[in-house]
Write a protein that binds this DNA or RNA. Sequence first.
DNA 1: CTTGACCCCTAGGGATTCTAGGGGTAGCGT
DNA 2: ACGCTACCCCTAGAATCCCTAGGGGTCAAG
Lengths: 112, 112
Amino acid sequence: MRADVLKGHLDLLLLTIVEDGAKHGYAVIEELRRRTDGAIDLPEGTIYPALHRLECAGLLTSEWHEVNGRRRRSYSLTSGGRHAAREKRREWTAFASTVQRVVGAPAWPTMA
Amino acid sequence: MRADVLKGHLDLLLLTIVEDGAKHGYAVIEELRRRTDGAIDLPEGTIYPALHRLECAGLLTSEWHEVNGRRRRSYSLTSGGRHAAREKRREWTAFASTVQRVVGAPAWPTMA
DNA sequence: CTTGACCCCTAGGGATTCTAGGGGTAGCGT
DNA sequence: ACGCTACCCCTAGAATCCCTAGGGGTCAAG
């Protein structure tokens, strides 16, 4: 799945992933891939700027760590980030059900 | 609801609306507003360029009409447009269920 | 020593939507 | 007659977001 279609919803995904425990950028990519069986496989050039943006916005904080001689920047949620995650989840639900209502289509798929 | 969040899904909405019968731009806006109880209320500056884009892409055709001394450009689906509508509906469903899977959240809301 | 996995980053471009204007007609109330 | 609202079309420019395409670098296996 192209992330083009994610426009506007990437933040929600990132906040959600980090909500389950601090993660560094590369790990976020892997976790998204894992949770979606590869359906969401974002390039680094998408993830890193997005994480920076969220940190600038005060929703994430980062810390540098050294692991196995490799430096990592680990991100975790701020309290603002936790609030934003809840809020964006609400927005997503409203958005998705509204679009679903317009396009009609069968009731929400049972995720076969 | 801001249409920012629509990015990448506006085409699906427009094709869906026009799929139910030819409509002019202004009527598309009203129909979207009607079907969503005002949740989706797009500015003209969003709709008109989008319709032009879809026509350029060969998914819509337009015809000028004169009604009550007012000129209207009426859009209808081409066969390519019908196909694209089905395809985009599939993509939307895949996208929405994937995001839903990531953000977890309760099962698909019963639209209380 | 080359390749691949792991890990970080930025610049520039493309695509999409919004803001903020520009037209114009018809009909209503005053 | 005038103003206001609804109806109806349009574009230019700004803003935003994600991608492409590079740039680093470490470590382990072949």
